[in-house]
C-alpha cells in the first residue's frame, strides 16, 4: 500500500508541467489500486487491526471487585495503566509466568526440531516413485487432518493408566501426572500430528527440483548423501524454512494439546496461552489481554529474529523487490512481489 504513494508524490516535484498525461495516468493507477485494495484493507483492519488495538486497550483495565458491604461486584472496569503487565512479572504470578514461558519455549524448540527431522524424512519417502505411493502419502497426512482436540483425546486414551502406551512398555507410567512423562506425552502427540505438515511443505519443495540436477550430480559421481546435502537441502531450504517458521509460530501458542491431554493447572505443561485462558475464564479480561499481548510480542520477536537470521523468504522477498521497483520505475508488473506471499499462504492453508 505504501509503495505507490511516494511515487505519486515525487512526480510533481521532478517534472511539474510537462508530462500531464503521464501524471494523470499515474494518479489514476494509484487511485484504482487504492480502490481495488480497499476491501482487503478494510477486512484486514476489521479482523487484525481492530482486535489488536481493542486488546491493547483492554489490557489497561481491570474488572471491579466485590463490595464487602453488599457482596455485589462493583460495575464497570477501572483504568489501571500498566498494572496488569507489572502484575505478570511480580510475586507468585512471575514464577508461574516464567515457568509457562520456559515450557512454551521448550515445547517449541523440541517439537519443531523433531518434527523437522521426521517431516523431511517423510517428504523424502513420499517423493520417491514407488508402488502404492498415493496410499503412503495419504496415510502420512492423516494425523494432520485430525483436529488437535480430537487427537489430544485419542492420545489421552492411549496414555491413560491402563492404556495402550503402558501395555506396550510393560510398566505403569502415569502420563498425566506432573513430571517428564506429561511433557513427553505432549511432545509425542504434537510431533505425531504436525510432522506431516512439514512433510507436506517440504514435499512441495522437493517436487520443484528438476531431475536434471540430480542426473548431472550422478554423472559427476556424487554419492547419495552428497546429493542430499549439496542439492536437495539447499534447493528445498526456502520451503523448509517457511514450514519451520509456521510450526514455530504455531507451537508458541500451543494450548489445546496440553490442556486436553494433560489438563489445566499442571506446572509441567502449562503454557503462556493457558495462562491467558485461565484469566479470561475467570472473567478477568484485562489481565488476560495483558498475557495475550505479552505472548503476541514474544511470537512477533521470534518470527522477526527467525526471518532476519535465517532469511526465510516470507517478507524478505517483498523487501528486496521494493528498491528494484524504484529503479525500474513503473515497469515492474504489479503482483510479482506478492506472488511469493500468495503461494505461501496457500501452502499454509493446507
Amino acid at each position: 500500500m505504501s509503495a505507490p504513494t511516494p511515487v505519486a508524490a515525487e512526480r510533481p516535484v521532478n517534472q511539474p508541467p510537462t508530462s500531464e498525461k503521464v501524471r494523470r495516468h499515474d494518479e489514476g493507477t494509484g487511485k484504482l489500486a487504492a480502490i481495488l485494495l480497499s476491501p482487503t484493507m478494510l477486512v484486514l483492519g476489521l479482523v487484525v487491526l481492530f482486535p489488536i488495538i481493542s486488546a491493547l486497550r483492554e489490557s489497561l483495565y481491570q474488572p471491579g471487585g466485590v463490595d464487602p458491604e453488599t457482596g455485589f461486584v462493583t460495575e464497570g472496569d477501572t483504568f489501571v495503566g500498566l498494572d496488569n503487565y507489572t502484575a505478570i512479572f511480580t510475586g507468585d504470578t512471575a514464577d508461574r509466568f516464567w515457568n509457562a514461558f520456559y515450557n512454551t519455549t521448550f515445547f517449541t524448540v523440541t517439537c519443531v526440531v523433531l518434527e523437522t527431522i521426521l517431516g523431511v524424512a517423510m517428504a523424502l519417502v513420499m517423493h520417491k516413485a514407488f508402488r502404492g505411493r498415493a496410499v503412503v502419502r495419504a496415510s502420512i497426512l492423516v494425523p494432520w487432518a485430525i483436529p488437535t482436540v480430537v487427537s489430544a483425546l485419542l492420545w489421552k486414551w492411549i496414555f491413560q493408566a491402563d492404556g495402550a502406551a503402558n501395555a506396550i512398555i510393560g510398566r505403569q507410567v502415569l502420563w498425566s501426572t506432573e513430571g517428564w512423562q506429561s511433557v513427553a506425552s505432549v511432545i509425542i502427540a504434537d510431533t505425531w500430528k504436525t510432522a506431516p505438515f512439514i512433510g507436506l511443505l517440504v514435499l512441495a519443495g522437493l517436487q520443484t527440483i528438476p531431475n536434471e540436477v540430480y542426473e548431472a550430480a550422478k554423472v559427476d559421481g556424487a554419492s547419495v548423501f552428497q546429493q542430499f546435502r549439496m542439492i536437495t537441502l539447499p534447493l528445498v531450504k526456502p520451503a523448509l524454512l517457511v514450514a519451520v517458521l509456521f510450526r514455530m509460530l504455531d507451537t508458541l501458542r500451543i494450548f489445546d494439546l496440553p490442556f486436553v491431554l494433560v489438563g489445566p493447572h499442571k506446572d509441567s505443561v502449562e503454557t503462556l496461552s493457558m495462562l491467558a485462558y485461565d484469566e479470561a475464564f475467570n472473567t478477568r479480561y484485562g489481565p488476560a489481554a495483558a498475557y495475550a499481548t505479552v505472548l503476541f510480542i514474544y511470537v512477533a520477536v521470534v518470527a522477526f529474529a527467525f526471518v532476519k537470521l535465517l532469511g526465510a523468504d516470507v517478507i524478505g522477498d517483498a523487501a528486496v523487490r521494493k528498491p528494484k521497483k524504484k529503479k525500474k520505475g513503473d515497469s515492474a508488473p504489479p503482483g510479482v512481489g506478492a506472488a511469493g506471499l500468495g503461494g505461501l499462504t496457500a501452502g499454509g492453508g493446507v
Binding site: 482486535p51 489488536i52 481493542s54 486488546a55 483492554e58 483495565y61 474488572p63 472496569d77 491467558a276 485462558y277 479470561a280 472473567t283 479480561y285 484485562g286 488476560a288 489481554a289 495475550a292
Partner: peptide, 8 residues
C-alpha cells in the same frame, strides 16, 4: 482471546 475480551 481478544474477541472474547471485547465483551468486557
Amino acid at each position: 482471546l481478544l474477541a472474547s475480551a471485547c465483551g468486557g
